[in-house]
Every structure is written in structure tokens, then in C-alpha cells.
Design a protein around this nucleic acid. Structure first.
Lengths: 106, 106
DNA sequence: TTGATAGGCAAGTCGCTACTTGCCTATTGT
DNA sequence: ACAATAGGCAAGTAGCGACTTGCCTATCAA
């Protein structure tokens, strides 16, 4: 579950796509292609962007709705809120502990 | 900057390492190797873990301190708090907008 | 109906990255 | 001094992932 989210966020292009969807929700594939070109200088093929969107969708970060021949892509930020809290314990900042002499396990 | 953090979090093994450091801070390389084996059944070579720790360190997620022949690894969660807020705008949840007929840019 | 637009499926290429192996340095204990 | 422990450097391998190319389907407008 969270694995898919981290995998989806690993790619810079996919993060840009999330940026563009944050700017305006409900875009089509061609709209996103155009925005990546004009706003980021990324000249990707339509298929490349489509595959990125598929990864984002299986991660639950993007949900889609079809309307006629258009397919609109909406951002879904809920998975983002859960993944990072895993290491941000309820206690506030981390304080390094006093070192202990370890026993090795080769 | 944030790119390194996302790249570091992309690998499952590196996430496990962060888990182990969350459990107990200030571990050595051999300790982490042992924990990955006993707690997760991951039988990696020492070098593999060392390389993972290097990635985590350049991402700023782990800081190290040398003491004699030991090198202790401490978790540093600060970079985690910043990366996700990028898409979690100050406004609360996302509401899909009304669709608009787009002009294409092939 | 025909052409244009929006999108999907499948196979193939290529580069990056996780991992291993082999050897080397430094610190500690007896 | 010597052996054992903790760690580092470098090169090589294998598999995954990003991207392309080619072709196919569906919806809408004229």
C-alpha cells in the first residue's frame, strides 16, 4: 500500500504532475502533457505521461472519472498524510542516545 | 534537495533501516545488518547496507558520528516534515472542479 | 459517414540502481 | 606484535523502470 505511494513519488516527472494537478484539478491527459512542456520544458510522449498517471492512480494519489471521450484526473492527497508520520513519532524531535558498545552479528 | 529525500525513500530496504533507527537511535552498521536479518529476514551483504546508509545520509535523513572504530547512525527526521506539505495546501481537502472543454496540444 | 480528437495496449530499448565480490585501512584487545 | 573487529573503496553484474514506437478503439463534429 504505502510501497506504491513511495514508488510513485520517486520519479521527478510524477511529482511535477502532482504539482500541476495541485494548481488545477480535473485535467485531461493532453492538458497535462501541454503543461509539462510549457511550465517545465518536459517534452515527453503522450504514452510516457499516460504511464506516469497509471502509476499515480495505482498509488491512490490520482483518481479518474470518464466523461464522454475525456478522462479527467483529480488529485487525492489522503495517502500523503499517512506515509511520513511513520517516522515522525508522536514525541517531538529526535535526540541522539548515548552510545552503547555493540556485539557484532557478521 | 527534496529529490534526494524522495530517492532515498523509494527503496523498501532503506525504509526498513529508518524503521530500525526509529526503534533505537545511534546504531552501527553491523547492528543494522543484524536487525534487518532478525526483524525482517533480509540477508543483505554489509556493503549493501553501507551503500543504503550513504544514500540516506546524502538525503539528510541520517547523520553519523564517529567514535573510535565505531560509526553511529542517528535518524534526522527534519527533511521528512517538509516534502509532503508541498501538495497538502493550507486549504483543507481537495474538491474536484467542474470539467472544462480543453484545447489539445499534441 | 468520414475525419479529427482523446485515449489504450503491447513490445522493445536503454540507463540507472541495488547488490555482490575482492581487497584494503584503522582501531582495539590479548 | 598480532589477530579480530568495524568500516571503506572500486569494479562488475543483473534486473527494474522510464521512455519510445506502432497500431488499435471510442467519441464527437462536419
Amino acid at each position: 500500500m504505502a510501497d506504491d505511494v513511495f514508488k510513485a513519488l520517486a520519479d521527478p516527472t510524477r511529482r511535477r504532475i502532482l504539482d500541476e494537478l495541485t494548481d488545477r484539478n480535473g485535467q485531461t491527459l493532453f492538458e497535462i502533457c501541454g503543461r509539462l512542456v510549457t511550465n517545465h520544458g518536459l517534452g515527453l510522449s503522450r504514452q510516457a505521461v499516460s504511464q506516469h498517471l497509471a502509476v499515480l492512480e495505482t498509488a491512490g494519489l490520482v483518481v479518474t472519472r470518464r466523461e464522454g471521450r475525456y478522462k479527467f484526473h483529480d488529485l487525492h492527497t489522503e495517502p500523503l498524510e499517512q506515509i511520513v508520520t511513520r517516522w515522525l513519532g508522536p514525541k517531538t524531535p529526535q535526540t541522539p542516545q548515548t552510545p552503547q558498545t555493540p556485539e557484532s552479528t557478521p
